[in-house]
């Protein structure tokens, strides 16, 4: 299963549920990148996300292709790409729609600090 340091591709619904469950168990922040192979903005942000994953091993970074896991994308109401969902203990705590480097970084920082202070 996902260890820190990289962005993990989730390819089946089972895997998705396992990641969510693991996030509940270890109380780590999950950052999920909903992406599509045909989406240019997703390609723009991908290297930046990989850098963040390397820098912040305390956060689990996942990547979900909306065409591959259609049901997950529909359940989570993903309409624009990339959409970043921030999940803590199975619940969505924040969302960043679009490839916005500063906002992505700030939102991660916000939720890491709220974890450590809890």
């Amino acid at each position: 299963m996902a260890e820190g340091g990289q962005v993990f591709g989730v390819h089946t619904v089972d895997e998705w549920h396992q990641h969510l469950q693991k996030g509940i168990d270890n109380k780590k922040l999950l950052v999920v990148d909903f992406t599509a192979s045909w989406c240019g903005p997703c390609k723009f942000i991908a290297p930046f996300l990989a850098e963040l994953a390397k820098k912040i091993p305390t956060v689990t970074f996942l990547k979900v292709d909306v065409d591959e896991l259609k049901s997950v994308a529909t359940d989570w109401a993903v309409e624009a790409m990339p959409t970043f969902m921030f999940i803590k203990e199975g619940k969505i705590v924040d969302k960043v729609v679009g490839a916005k480097k500063d906002e992505l970084q700030q939102t991660i920082a916000k939720h890491i600090s709220s974890t450590s202070s809890a």
Binding site: A36, G40, P41, C42, E79, A80, P82, G98, K101
Partner: peptide, 12 residues
């Protein structure tokens, strides 16, 4: 500087 797309087009 920032970007987003949907099923119809990409915007930067």
């Amino acid at each position: 500087v920032s970007a987003v797309g949907n099923q119809y087009f990409d915007s930067y």
